[in-house]
Design a protein around this nucleic acid. Structure first.
Lengths: 329, 329
DNA sequence: AAATCTGTTGTTACCGCTATCAAAAACCGC
DNA sequence: GCGGTTTTTGATAGCGGTAACAACAGATTT
């Protein structure tokens, strides 16, 4: 930059202004500076800029696991909105471990990110304290926690699971099994389970621990759950797979075993992956606003960062989900 | 940091050293400093550190599209290795547009990333020039380009498509259709098509433009391609879906129409998504080293950055793929 | 015991930019 | 054409660290 200034015969400040606040510089100056910039291929050092102005254009995102296609829509939403405002995304994965998350938060704060997006809503007390102390805006967006750190943009896992379970109940299913991902350090799973139980209560159905299962991600797990539940508790007439692609695996298992869906057993899923519409029978599911969550998250974060919209602190945005009835129920 | 120095009664340099080069400071000093650091919850400013030392711990990654589950394994491999060395990942998407990519490269260079990972291998001349000028190490990893920018870690799309087409030919299929994603600004698709043609030549089969199709991503596209190809050219006896989940869509279409696979038409896919093993018939495909690509990319990048391993400049690492024969062929 | 070496700590000058305020230039009405 | 205002430009002091070298003590050599 010094180089540009010398070659253009202006002060270093004029160069800075020509580049960042073009309005504050006369057209001739600006032109002169920009010409030299192009000539020598000058690249501003954004690090120095951030340090000096103590404003950065980086947002930190922590997801439990990167290789989960569920998040990609949200990341896309985030990324697209942030990009438009010249912000960059730093992504890291916590592996469902709050301590790991805390460490990543520390690193991100060290990098002076100007905002933080956390998918998980379970944090160590130290993590919460560090964030509070840093003063930067945070959005949690995997669930709606009882005690948010700051802002929240999400749908309610509890309500979604409740809605689907109620739906099954209303359709006449009486023995509704429930499968989810492991709920240790995963409050999304916990909330879904609670929603399921709440609905059972509402429906006047007796909970049965034999048909409430937790498993890991993947098609194979879904298949395994389906087989296990039908064989151990034959009177089961519906299975609600509240996680990932479990339902697809479960459906394949039924096809393999010749179990009619929904005749023998109804099947419901949680997330509207493309697949569920194309299999036969098509699978009832919940359409979750994954992309919107990313978009809204970015927007509200930018409001706080750019416009300093302090009144948004602590906002909780509960985005709607949609229940999609298909052939499997 | 000044604050820490004062409270610990030492110089600012001692604090810096206690934190970053603990070996160069006496144990008592180190302890004294670390105590104060914990006491006041001091967080180093990584921006300042990077600026001053002109070393950053950020790697930029540009993918064509974030919401493509294909990349997630690679990103995971990258992320896990980088994290171990304290490096952070910045991710952005170019939307298959080289100009957009150039802009992102500029931004990343401005952020002074210490390395760059590009999934695409098609770049604007200006982008190439900027990278060259910056001197930072770069890895391309979506394909093996004819003229690499610097290092390459990938499998060969050409060879993989060639291998699968040869496989189909050897199994006796004579009229092999080929479907891929649009090849504009997508040299992965282009190379796959070339591999297909090379194999046809080798097999002594006549290429037929009527059964070479390009389409967009998604199950629906696969279904549509299958229907189109079978109906317009009934003598077709195999379809090689060289992209994404096209093959799954195609298979569903066959099931829907009652076309026997592989009796009526054989089906092969390109990427070993979990699904292909679980559908019935299971689908032959290519197992690509997605995770390994990420891992090796990170490793070689770190060698260059940390160890200054200049002899690695221009390395091309061609990772193996594996052909998986299943019921569909 | 003087000379040299080694290890630890401190001093100072930046890294490349922005904030802030001062100076200069341009504009204004009267 | 003059004081007053506004706009444009410049000088300077950091932002929070690190590099490079100086200073000093204690250990080792000769």
């Amino acid at each position: 930059m010094r180089d540009v200034a010398v070659r253009a015969g202006v002060s270093i400040m004029t160069v800075s202004r020509a580049l960042n606040e073009p309005g504050k510089v006369s057209p001739e100056m600006r032109e002169k500076v920009l010409r030299v910039v192009r000539e020598i291929g000058y690249l501003p050092n954004h690090l120095a800029g951030s340090l000096s102005s103590s404003r950065s254009t980086t947002i930190g995102l922590i997801v439990p696991s990167i290789d989960n296609s569920i998040y990609t829509q949200t990341v896309k939403g985030l990324s697209e909105v942030l990009k438009r405002s010249g912000f960059q995304l730093m992504i890291a994965e916590s592996g469902y471990d709050p301590n790991e998350e805390e460490e990543l938060i520390t690193i991100f704060l060290s990098q002076r990110v100007s905002g933080l997006v956390l998918h998980s809503t379970e944090h160590t007390p130290q993590a919460a304290e560090k964030i509070r102390k840093s003063g930067i805006p945070v959005v949690e967006n995997g669930n709606i926690p009882a005690e948010p750190l700051d802002m929240v943009v999400s749908f309610s896992n509890h309500d979604a699971a409740y809605a689907m379970t109620m739906h099954l109940g209303r359709l006449g299913y009486r023995k509704i099994a429930f499968a989810s991902l492991y709920s240790v350090h995963n409050d999304r799973s916990k909330d879904r389970l609670e929603g399921y139980h709440a609905a059972l209560g509402q429906l006047g159905l007796e909970p049965d621990p034999r048909i409430v299962l937790e498993t890991e991600r993947g098609l194979a797990s879904g298949a395994e759950v389906m087989a296990r539940v039908v064989q151990s508790v034959p009177e089961v007439d519906a299975l609600f797979c509240a996680g990932d692609v479990l339902a697809v695996g479960a459906l394949f298992e039924c096809q393999k075993r010749g179990w009619d869906v929904p005749g023998r057993i109804a099947l419901a899923s949680f997330d509207d992956v493309d697949l569920l519409r194309h299999v036969s029978p098509s699978v009832s599911t919940l359409r979750l606003p994954r992309y919107d969550i990313g978009e809204r998250t970015a927007r509200i974060l930018l409001s706080r960062i750019i416009d300093g919209a302090e009144h948004l602190r602590g906002s909780v945005i509960d985005l709607k989900f949609e229940l999609i009835q298909r052939e499997s129920t």
